[in-house]
């Protein structure tokens, strides 16, 4: 198959072009609140476009409060006021069944969503009911989908838990009796047991120790490979991205500022923010003083004009204070939103 009609900007990698499973276009989602007559608008997702291919793990990185969770909530259709979609669209394509999340009725959305999509939320306790045993959560969540008689169903669950190195007796435990790491693995088991086509995971391994984390990541990768699902994997931990994701989007202040194959971004980051993130990583054996980024993350209720990174950017120019740099192609499979990069390159 030739890729003459490239389906999405930036996707120049010579893979056989299958239709993306997810296309997000010009998405804007704001928290709109009214406190004592004062309207406050937090622009946590502000004009984001991206696509995710079948069988791909797309990573999303960025500092705390840049809007990662908001973006994936919006993609999952799991939003409620004060978060509102202000513009743009989120379109899934599950094996020929298209779903335009914000143009469908809630019923249609839910019917398709729960069959094909699974969302591992940030904070592991939230999906486990604290007053019910873990077994009950599995029954509530997966029994209908799996459609086996109870004894076989339990066998399926136990076999699945085993892959996450959890023993059958966690089914009898209450969530508070498990350590943070065990709870987190239980939620991952819950989210993957129905073999969804699309998995959204928000910081699923941040509560784990490094040994277990490595095992769980390998398991996530294994399941993803086995069922060929696509995955949107959010973590601020760049080392995880380096080891797990195929493509990476770097988010800053409600926008994606750089995107490309993960290994390429690590090899040669283009956006000054990405470069700072990658160079400030502490490594064992390294005691050279390392500073976080100077300045504070922008307040998304009043984002800086122009490039939102300009108050913290060592390369900021005049134009950066006035105009917002658009995401533009920059090398094979890569996009970046920075005047210093796109204006500096011969076009």
């Amino acid at each position: 198959m030739t890729a003459i009609a490239s389906p999405a900007p930036g996707d120049v990698i010579a893979k056989p072009q299958r239709e993306p499973v997810l296309v997000v276009s010009d998405l804007r989602a704001y928290y709109q609140t009214h406190y004592f007559g004062i309207v406050r608008e937090v622009r946590a997702v502000d004009d984001i476009s991206l696509h995710i291919n079948p069988d791909e793990i797309y990573g999303l990185a960025g500092e705390s409060s840049c809007g990662k969770t908001t973006l994936i909530k919006t993609i999952a259709g799991a939003i409620q006021p004060p978060l509102n979609v202000v513009g743009g669209s989120v379109r899934f394509n599950f094996g020929g069944a298209p779903l335009d999340v914000y143009a469908s009725t809630p019923q249609a959305r839910n019917a398709i969503r729960w069959r094909h999509l699974s969302y591992i939320m940030q904070g592991s306790m939230s999906v486990l009911n604290p007053v019910r045993r873990v077994r009950q959560s599995f029954i509530d969540f997966a029994f209908r989908h799996i459609g086996q008689p109870m004894p076989q169903f339990i066998d399926t669950i136990v076999a699945h838990l085993e892959r996450l190195h959890l023993q059958a007796n966690v089914l009898d435990a209450y969530p508070h009796e498990l350590s943070g790491g065990m709870r987190q693995r239980v939620t991952i088991a819950l989210a993957t047991v129905c073999r969804p086509e699309f998995i959204i995971a928000d910081e699923p391994t941040t509560a784990l120790d490094v040994v277990v984390q490595k095992g769980v990541l390998a398991m996530i990768r294994g399941i993803q490979r086995e069922i060929g699902s696509s995955m949107l994997f959010v973590t601020h931990d760049l080392a995880v991205h380096a080891n797990l994701t195929d493509r990476l989007g770097i988010m800053y202040a409600g926008r994606i500022v750089e995107e490309g194959p993960t290994a390429e971004i690590f090899r040669a980051p283009k956006h000054p923010y990405t470069a700072n993130l990658i160079h400030s990583l502490p490594r064992i054996g390294d005691t050279a003083p390392k500073k976080g980024l100077d300045g504070v993350p922008p307040n998304l209720a009043e984002p800086p004009p122009g490039c939102r990174f300009h108050p913290r950017c060592p390369l900021a120019m005049d134009i950066c204070r006035r105009e917002n740099p658009a995401m533009e192609p920059s090398g094979p499979g890569r996009r970046v939103a920075c005047f210093a990069v796109t204006r500096g390159e011969p076009s």
Binding site: H165, L166, Q167, N169, V170, A173, L178, S179, M182, D209, V210, V211, V212, Q213, K214, G215, L217, A218, M219, R221, G222, L238, A239, V240, A242, N243, L244, T245, D246, T262, A263, F266, R267, I278, L281, R283, I284
Partner: peptide
């Protein structure tokens, strides 16, 4: 094991080997 499990940011997407300590398996109650 702990030291060797630290993910290096310098790795280039190499596939992770599933590698659990045997102790991790019997974490729950045994």
């Amino acid at each position: 094991l702990l030291r060797n499990s630290v993910l290096s940011p310098d790795a280039k997407g190499e596939l992770l080997e599933p590698q659990f300590s045997t102790t991790e398996r019997d974490l729950a109650g045994t």
